[in-house]
């Protein structure tokens, strides 16, 4: 493990921002720290970055402190510095930076053309990418990224997620997010935080298998309301919720759904497009764990 914490606790007066967190991040992994706002993600990353001190517990980093790079959620830089100067400063402050690395990371972040413009004129997405370039330039062994894509538009998010994906194998990445799709796409290990407690950590497969309630996805052309009402009255149905044009029907067991779903739909006047088992998604498990 490149990062391990043991019974890590951080208190602000009576409030426990972190409560006995045992984090374990394998070397080379992309670790997603998921949790609702106020769960303790930023506090945990702040402690790992050395910016905050734990109230109790311990942190063990299998990497020198100067090989750790941190990116805050909304990176800001002196507006009178150019993008190139920001990355050059980060390169100079890193323990060792290969020649030509500044240009390389600026190009990788898609900022080659804007590198001589002042950061004060950068968009939010460009600042985020500039932050990532400054974080990557020293070739750190461990990157701590706090909500790196949460505040960006879809195109900006895509660029940042692609950058993170390209870091796989080159460094260990711990990034926090409340956008589950980002975590599901980018991470191979996940930790779920709520109210300062680490409710789960492991691989995505470990998290999904057997945890979420089995469910069926119904696609109906019409009669959805009547079908939903009828389904809610069935004792083998645990929940019915709309998801776009579909209905997600939580069931006690898939056996019962396979045996009885067709009958209920026949009884309603719904026109059925498709019926199929729905694979558990991170969002289902997240809601199950954090609700």
């Amino acid at each position: 493990m490149i990062v391990e914490t043991s019974a890590l606790t951080k208190r602000y007066a009576a409030h426990a921002a972190l409560d006995g967190v045992d984090l374990a991040v394998p070397a080379g992994s992309v670790y997603g720290l998921v949790g609702p706002n106020g769960a303790g993600k930023t506090t945990l990353l702040g402690i790992l970055a050395g910016l905050r001190r734990p109230t109790s517990g311990s942190v063990r980093l299998e990497v020198a402190r100067d090989r750790v790079a941190t990116l805050p959620d909304t990176p800001q830089f002196d507006p009178w510095l150019t993008g190139r100067e920001v990355v050059s400063l980060a390169a100079r402050l890193a323990p060792s930076t290969p020649a030509g690395k500044v240009d390389e990371v600026l190009a990788e972040a898609g900022l080659a053309e804007a590198s001589d413009r002042r950061a004060g004129g950068y968009s939010r997405g460009m600042l985020q990418r500039l932050g990532l370039a400054a974080t990557m330039v020293g070739e750190p062994s461990l990157l701590l990224l706090d909500e790196p894509a949460s505040a960006l538009d879809p195109a900006g998010r895509r660029e940042v997620l692609d950058l993170i994906a390209r870091l796989r194998g080159r460094a260990t990445v711990v990034f926090s997010s409340h956008i589950l799709a980002d975590v599901q796409e980018a991470c191979d290990r996940i930790g779920i935080l709520r109210d300062g407690r680490l409710l789960f950590q492991g691989s995505l497969d470990q998290l999904l298998v057997g945890r979420a309630t089995p469910s069926v996805e119904l696609r109906l052309r019409s009669g959805g309301d009547q079908a939903a009402a009828l389904l809610r009255r069935q004792d083998w149905v645990t929940s019915v919720r709309p998801a776009g044009a579909a209905l997600i029907v939580g069931v006690r067991t898939m056996d019962e759904a396979e045996a009885r779903m067709a009958g209920v739909l026949a009884e309603s006047s719904a026109r059925v497009i498709s019926v199929g088992p729905r694979e558990a998604e991170l969002e289902d498990v997240f809601l199950e764990l954090t609700s």
């Binding site: 970055a49 805050p72 990176p75 830089f77």
Partner: peptide
């Protein structure tokens, strides 16, 4: 955010 850039 600026402080994090320098301090880390």
């Amino acid at each position: 955010e600026m402080a994090v850039f320098l301090r880390t």
